[in-house]
Nucleic acid binder design. Structure first.
Lengths: 337, 337
DNA sequence: TTGAAAGCGGTACCAC
DNA sequence: GTGGTACCGCTTTCAA
């Protein structure tokens, strides 16, 4: 049971290797008869083309590098599934690179991908990485690359992002309608995501004749449950005259909700709460969370599609693709009658 | 700015390609002087070895195929991170294959991996797939393969699994101490996981002088939130003389918890509830869930390690590695005074 | 210590 | 329509 190659088949069929190659690749000018015969033999021998050899001459690997900061957290899985969905169809495979928010790993993976000669790269740059990534732009410019979630040089690279400002706007609009007193904003670390969401939020409130003062805005250092609890505790120790909170991530919203409950503040009766992301399980919470849904699967799908287009068209102009979030109203926001 | 190959360097250094190759690979019998000189040139030219070409002659790709039924659900991410952790260290890359529980995709990916000539495979067989996978065993026997979570031919392949029976036992023991009335079991579809967990659960109850009748065992068709809700509704319509439930998955436990709450049955005051998995967010629930934790990260880490061992040692004997789960007591189970 | 040459398994050009 | 053959970029004998 040794490996069967084109040569093996050629010998058995008593034809040349090139004929075999062409037959198997359905090349037009080959006698259908021969084609059929050869395919038959190939099947019988259980022939499997050696992708490596093919990759070498075709100069492409059918491999796509996907660089993300983490997998945990329920947000990335859906994106990955969206990607997979389109990749499998086109016979590309995903090479997973999880940087774990470490600069060192990001560097490591980037050079790995350049070495591995992947056909394309999808990367969500972490804030800290933006500096680091500059080192690779010369490489990246020679290989189809898509940046996602966080915008990066949209003039040079295709970006597939979510309209965070719109998301903030939706949250603001909704809370403005549900609340009578002050409405608070809880962001993560100041940066792309939080700033954009805050901006839209503010616009919406103003449009509804509400205001959002400096003191109504709170920021955490990380988008975590603990950070949410902590900031909620701080808020509660300071003021009571609010009945709405927009948290810039579902995970933080969960922390906030937990803290409120411990202080006997009911959601949504006393305080309306809106999150951001629409993680798969927030609909299963005791009080299902109203939230701004990012189109996670679609994100993956769209960027996969765009990347493949770029790979196949050899060269193409960078696009800025902005996907729209949607508001999903569940039970953490009060319904005005 | 064209690609630099060994040849480029050879011409500049005025030596043969093989000398360059050997120098760059630190081959022993090459003059340290030449070596240094060549390495210098390579660096200046920003030479990057073409992994594809190397792969072809070395007949290995540094790629590992990972076949799992889904990524969503928070269980797999941790496993993947455990894997990545060890793979990056050893310079292997993960080729992600998400089958989405579809037989067709499983088939597709398996043949893809065989084609792609990955150096090793890690696979969690889904129940339905076990039949399908038989078709590939001839291939798999020629390539280091590890099966995980669900046991599969431990005589032929290394298996890295979790002691599900022990997990069930821990849950049983704990509930037996917390409860005074009947204790119920809610499993997923009958099969490896559910059966093992039930077995251990039963043993524990019996050891504590409790019994578990047929009617106390319920089974769902899927490990989902909805299934949990549904089964809880059924249970509630039938009997009231219970004060403990062991659900064979956290997600189902969440559904059960939700349904109980809607019927004004308090957890843990009225009913103690134990889950299985320890998904990252169950500690953040309104009533943090007592659950049997699977060592997710460790799972990934261990199987990564074992696989690499197998790859490097060329041949090795199959091992059956069983990791132990632990009980994490949180607030969904009543504490007896 | 070095280098020429033979592949690895395909693809594709160009004669026939 | 078919097949011989020259690569792709690298590793690895083996002879010099």
């Amino acid at each position: 049971m040794k490996k069967v190659t084109l040569k093996t088949i050629a010998e058995i069929a008593e034809v040349g290797v090139s004929t075999v190659s062409m037959s198997l690749n359905d090349h037009p000018n080959i006698n259908p008869e021969t084609k059929k015969r050869i395919k038959q033999i190939a099947k019988e021998l259980n022939y499997v083309p050696n992708i490596i050899a093919r990759a070498m001459v075709r100069k492409q690997t059918s491999l796509i590098g996907v660089v993300i900061p983490q997998i945990e957290g329920s947000f990335y899985p859906s994106i990955l599934e969206g990607l997979e969905d389109i990749f499998t169809e086109k016979l590309f495979s995903t090479v997973l690179c999880v940087t774990n928010h470490s600069q060192e790993k990001e560097h490591f993976y980037m050079s790995l991908l350049c070495d591995k000669h992947v056909d394309g790269i999808i990367i969500e740059p972490s804030r800290e990485f933006i500096g680091e990534i500059e080192n690779f732009t010369p490489y990246l410019e020679k290989i189809p690359t898509i940046f996602t979630l966080q915008q990066y040089k949209p003039d040079s690279f295709t970006n597939v992002i979510v309209n965070n400002e719109k998301g903030g706007f939706l949250a603001g609009e909704h809370l403005a309608e549900a609340c009578e007193e002050r409405i608070l904003f809880v962001g993560g670390p100041k940066g792309w995501y939080t700033n954009q969401r805050l901006k839209g939020f503010q616009v919406a409130l103003e449009k509804k004749g509400r205001s959002l003062s400096q003191e109504d805005c709170h920021f955490t250092t990380r988008y975590t449950y603990e950070a949410g609890r902590k900031v909620a505790a701080e808020i509660l120790s300071q003021k009571q005259d609010f009945d709405g909170i927009f948290a810039a991530s579902d995970i933080m919203a969960m922390g906030i909700m937990h803290e409120l409950r411990e202080k006997n503040i009911r959601v949504p009766e006393d305080v309306s709460l809106v999150g951001f992301d629409d993680l798969p399980f927030v609909s299963m919470l005791e009080v299902p969370l109203t939230t701004v849904a990012q189109p996670q699967f679609e994100l993956g799908n769209v960027m996969g599609q765009k990347l493949i287009e770029q790979i196949e068209e050899y060269h193409s102009t960078p696009e800025l693709i902005v996907l729209e979030p949607t508001l999903i109203v569940r039970q953490s926001t009060r319904k005005r009658i």
